[in-house]
C-alpha cells in the first residue's frame, strides 16, 4: 500500500467507524428496544412485542401528556415566531455594523448553560421574585401573582431558551430577501398588509418553517425546564421519557415514546422539504 493510500485509509476508517458505532448503532438499538419486553429485574427481555406502542396509544394518561406537550411546544413556537419575526426583520434592515452587535447580544445568553438560565428565571418569576416586586411597588397588583409552578412559568422559560433558534433562521432568510420586490409592490399600489401577505410572507416562509421546526421539536424534550418551573405535573414528552428511563425503568416504553417523537419530527421535516421543493419550482 502506498503512503498516500495509508493516510486516506486511516481517515476513512476512523470517521466511518465513529459514525457507525456512535451514530447509527445507538439509533438502531433504540428502535430495537422499543419492540422488546420490559423486565423489572433485567431491564429488558429479548422477546418481540408491540406492547410499548399499544400502551402508548391506548392508555389515556400518555395521550394526555402528548397532547399537553404538543400544546405547550406549539405555544412556545408561536410566541417565538411572534416576537422573533419583527426582531429578525428589523435586525436584517439595520446597517451591517449594528447587525453583528445585535446578533452577538442575542447569542451571549445562549452561550450560558441553559439549566443555569432556567434556574435564574425562577428568581424572576417567584412569589418574591423581581417581577412580582416591581408590579407590587408600581401598584399594578395588590397580591403577588402566582406564576411559578404553572404552565405560564414553563412557557416563559421555554420562550427564553428557544428565541434565538427562531431568530437565526428567520434572519438568514430575511437578510437574503430582495427588498426591491417590496418597493415594486408598494409602487404598484399594494398596501402594507398585502405587501406582507403576498410578497414578504411567502418569500420568508422557508425561514419561518425552519425556525418553527428548530423550536418545536427540541422544546418537547426540555424536561428540566418543566421540572424546575412547572412543579410536579408531567408536562412534556421529555419528562415522560426521562421518567421511563431513569425512574420507572421501563425502557421499551421510553424508547417507543421517543420513536413516536422521531416520526413526528420526520413528518415535519418532510413537510418542510415538500414546501422548499414547491418553492423552488414556483421561482423557475
Amino acid at each position: 500500500m502506498k503512503i498516500a493510500d495509508k493516510t486516506r485509509f486511516f481517515i476513512i476508517l476512523l470517521i466511518s467507524g465513529w459514525f457507525i458505532l456512535f451514530g447509527v448503532t445507538p439509533l438502531l438499538l433504540l428502535v430495537m428496544t422499543s419492540f422488546l419486553t420490559m423486565d423489572p429485574a433485567d431491564l429488558v427481555q429479548f422477546s418481540f412485542t408491540l406492547k410499548a406502542y399499544s400502551q402508548l396509544f391506548i392508555e389515556p394518561g400518555y395521550i394526555i401528556i402528548f397532547i399537553r406537550s404538543v400544546k405547550l411546544a406549539l405555544a412556545t413556537t408561536l410566541l417565538c415566531l411572534g416576537f422573533g419575526y419583527p426582531f429578525a426583520w428589523y435586525t436584517a434592515r439595520m446597517p451591517p455594523k449594528w447587525r453583528t452587535s445585535v446578533l452577538i447580544l442575542l447569542m451571549i445568553p445562549f452561550w450560558t448553560n441553559s439549566l443555569v438560565r432556567t434556574y435564574a428565571m425562577r428568581m424572576v418569576l417567584g412569589t418574591h421574585g423581581i417581577l412580582n416586586k416591581s408590579l407590587l411597588s408600581l401598584g399594578l397588583i395588590n397580591t403577588p401573582l402566582k406564576i411559578m409552578y404553572t404552565d405560564y412559568a414553563v412557557l416563559a422559560g421555554l420562550f427564553y431558551l428557544m428565541l434565538p433558534f427562531m431568530v437565526l433562521p428567520l434572519y438568514a432568510t430575511i437578510e437574503k430577501l430582495n427588498f426591491q420586490l417590496i418597493e415594486a409592490a408598494r409602487d404598484l399600489g399594494a398596501g402594507a398588509v398585502s405587501a406582507f401577505t403576498k410578497i414578504i410572507f411567502p418569500l420568508t416562509l422557508p425561514g419561518i418553517m425552519a425556525g418553527c421546526i428548530m423550536v418545536f421539536v427540541p422544546t418537547m424534550g426540555l424536561f428540566y425546564v418543566a421540572s424546575l418551573l412547572g412543579g410536579a405535573r408531567q408536562l412534556l414528552v421529555g419528562n415522560l421519557i426521562q421518567q421511563q428511563f431513569l425512574n420507572a425503568r421501563n425502557w421499551p416504553l421510553g424508547s417507543a415514546t421517543s420513536i413516536v417523537l422521531i416520526i413526528f419530527m420526520a413528518l415535519m421535516l418532510i413537510g418542510y422539504g415538500l414546501l422548499l421543493h414547491r418553492f423552488s419550482r414556483e421561482r423557475k
Partner: peptide
C-alpha cells in the same frame, strides 16, 4: 445531519442504550 437535528433527549437515551 441526523445527529445535529435530533432532539437531545433522543440522542441521550440512544447513547444510554448503546
Amino acid at each position: 445531519m441526523t445527529l445535529m437535528m435530533a432532539p437531545d433527549i433522543i440522542l441521550a437515551i440512544a447513547f444510554l442504550v448503546l
